[in-house]
């Protein structure tokens, strides 16, 4: 439970980095979705119902940050989590290429699901293929680094907290 709370806190930090540092330094570029990468991480390493709930909360945080409508990101994150968790035992998570490809595909799927849900309620166009593709590439490039960072942080917490030993879903 503490581990999931830590992930949520890290999600909040991810939101902060996305909304201040990256946007402030590079105002004209597409920002990577760090929470999306965290959702894929959860699907690999927290394959449980609690993990699904955490993915939902991460998505909801992103929705709340937007302030227009609640739910589309939460829905897309949960779908991505479910799909990846379902096949995670067949993916070699120690290979950076495997996780990069998975993150790339998940980003595209999540953005399409988000766009579809958001369109249903606001009738606004959220379908820029360039933005979706660019974000997916950025997420894929960042995911090996973020995965390593998250694994390190969570392992350290487990050692300090004396909780259950950190384990990989499948190697």
């Amino acid at each position: 439970m503490r581990r999931l709370l830590l992930i949520m806190f890290l999600g909040l930090m991810g939101l902060l980095i996305q909304s201040t540092l990256i946007r402030g330094l590079f105002p004209h570029i597409v920002v990577p979705n760090l929470l999306m990468v965290m959702c894929v991480f959860l699907a690999f390493y927290e394959t449980s119902v609690a993990g699904a709930c955490t993915a939902f909360v991460l998505g909801l945080l992103l929705d709340m940050c937007g302030g227009i409508v609640l739910g589309p990101w939460a829905g897309s994150f949960v779908l991505v989590f479910g799909a990846v968790a379902f096949v995670s035992q067949r993916i070699f998570v120690e290979s950076p290429v495997a996780i990069m490809v998975t993150t790339f595909v998940c980003s595209i799927v999540a953005n399409i699901v988000y766009s579809s849900l958001a369109y249903q309620v606001s009738r606004s166009e959220f379908s820029s293929p360039e933005i979706i593709a660019l974000e997916a590439v950025l997420n894929a490039l960042l995911c090996p680094l973020l995965f390593a960072l998250l694994r390190k942080l969570l392992k350290r917490r487990d050692r300090q907290g004396g909780g259950k030993r950190y384990h990989f879903a499948r190697t």
């Binding site: 449980s48 609640l70 829905g75 799909a83």
Partner: peptide, 16 residues
């Protein structure tokens, strides 16, 4: 997990 994800997705639809 698949069942929980589906239930949470329905919750997300309701929230939306």
């Amino acid at each position: 997990i698949a069942g929980a994800s589906l239930a949470l997705f329905c919750l997300a639809l309701f929230l939306t």
